[in-house]
Design a protein around this nucleic acid. Sequence first.
DNA 1: ACCTGAACACCGTTCAAGT
DNA 2: ACCTGAACACCGTTCAAGT
Lengths: 210, 210
Amino acid sequence: MAERTPLTRDRLLRSAVRLADREGIGALTIRSLARDLGVTPMALYHHVHGKEEILDGIVDLVFAEIALPEPGEPWPAAMRRRAASARRALARHPWAVVLMESRTAPGPATMRHHEAVLASLRAGGFSVPAAATAAAVLDAFVYGFAVQEAALPFDGTPTPEVIEGFRVHVDPQAYPYMAEMLTGHVAQPGYDFGAEFERGLDLILGALAP
Amino acid sequence: MAERTPLTRDRLLRSAVRLADREGIGALTIRSLARDLGVTPMALYHHVHGKEEILDGIVDLVFAEIALPEPGEPWPAAMRRRAASARRALARHPWAVVLMESRTAPGPATMRHHEAVLASLRAGGFSVPAAATAAAVLDAFVYGFAVQEAALPFDGTPTPEVIEGFRVHVDPQAYPYMAEMLTGHVAQPGYDFGAEFERGLDLILGALAP
DNA sequence: ACCTGAACACCGTTCAAGT
DNA sequence: ACCTGAACACCGTTCAAGT
C-alpha cells in the first residue's frame, strides 16, 4: 500500500473515512490508518494533533456530503431533500452518528449545514424559537432513524435467513405482539424498513408550521 | 476497592454501568472494571464471554430502567410516559444510545420493552403496519433527541462561559442565522433545550393516529 | 518540514496453573 | 467452580533522532 504522494491532512482524513466504512470505526486506529497510507504511525502527528482531531475531521467530512437547502427553495422541499440526503450519508457512514454524540468541536461543513437549515426556515417564515424547534425535531428524527437503521440486522429488507433467525429467537408465547409484527409485517414480501423514513418525515413536516 | 461478596454476572454488569456513567464508555475496559471489582481481569471471563457480552448486558440494563406502558392505559399517555422515561434513562447513561447502534443481541428487558410498546399501540387500534410506523417514528425521535442532548456542550441551559464561547467561535458575518439563534434565543434567560422534547413529542403524537 | 525507531503505559484475550 | 500469573498481539502517544 506504499504511496508516493506526500501525506496531507485531507488525504489522511479521506483515508480514515474509507477505513471506517470498510472495517468499522473500531478498526480505525492510528496504526491501521498509517498502514493504509504506507507510513509510520508517528507520521500522522505532523498533520493532526491526535486521534480526537481525526474523529472531528471525519464527522465534518460526512456533513460535507449532505445536500444543503438552496436559497429560494420552499422550506418543506428543502427540509425533505436535506433529510433524505442526510439519511443516505449516515447510511453510507454508519459510524458517523455514533461519533456525532461525542464531538463538541463542529467543523466548517457542520457549521455551514446548520446555518443553511436555519436560513431556509427563517426565510420560510419561522420565528427564531419556531426554527429552533423545527430543526431540533427534524434532526432528532434523522439521527434517531439512522441509529435504528444501523442497528437492524439486515439492509432494509430481511433475508430468509434473518427471518428464520427471528422465528427461532422470538417466542410467540412470551412476545405475541413482536411475533405478530414479524410474521404479519416484516416477513411479508415487499417489506422495507426504509419506507418508514418517508412516512415519518411526512408526518413531521405536515405538523410543522411557521 | 477490594470486595468480599462473590462476583456474579449481575454485580459485574451493574458495576460496568456505574463505571461508564462515571468516566465514560471509553474508560470501561475489562481491566478498569476488574480493578473496581477488586479482582483480576481474567476473573470476569468466568461470568461473561468477553467485552461484547458486557456491552450487550449494560444496554439491556438501561432498557430495564424505562417505564413500560401499563395494560389499559390509553396509548397517547402510555407513549408520552415511556418516551419521557426513555429520555431520562438515556440522559443518565449517555453512552447507551451509542452502544444501541452496534448491538444486535437484544436482551430480555429490551424485548419486554418493545413488546409492551406494540401491545399498547395494537390495543389502541393501530393496525400492524401503523403500529410499526408509530413505534419507528417515536423511537427515532427519542434516540435522536438523546444524541443531540449528549452532544450539547451544556446541560439544558448554557452557562455564561458557554455563551461567551459561542460569541467567540460563531462569527456573525459568516453565520448570521446561527448568531441570531444564539443571541436571540439560546442566550435568553429561561432557555432550556430540554423543552424541545415536549414540543417535538406533542407534535408527533398529535400527527399519529390508528 | 517531514518522517522514523524505540519506548512507555495501556488494551482484550488465551493458556496453563492454582485452590 | 472460581480465580490467578504470565504471556501475546495489539492500542495512542512521547521523545530523541534522522533527512
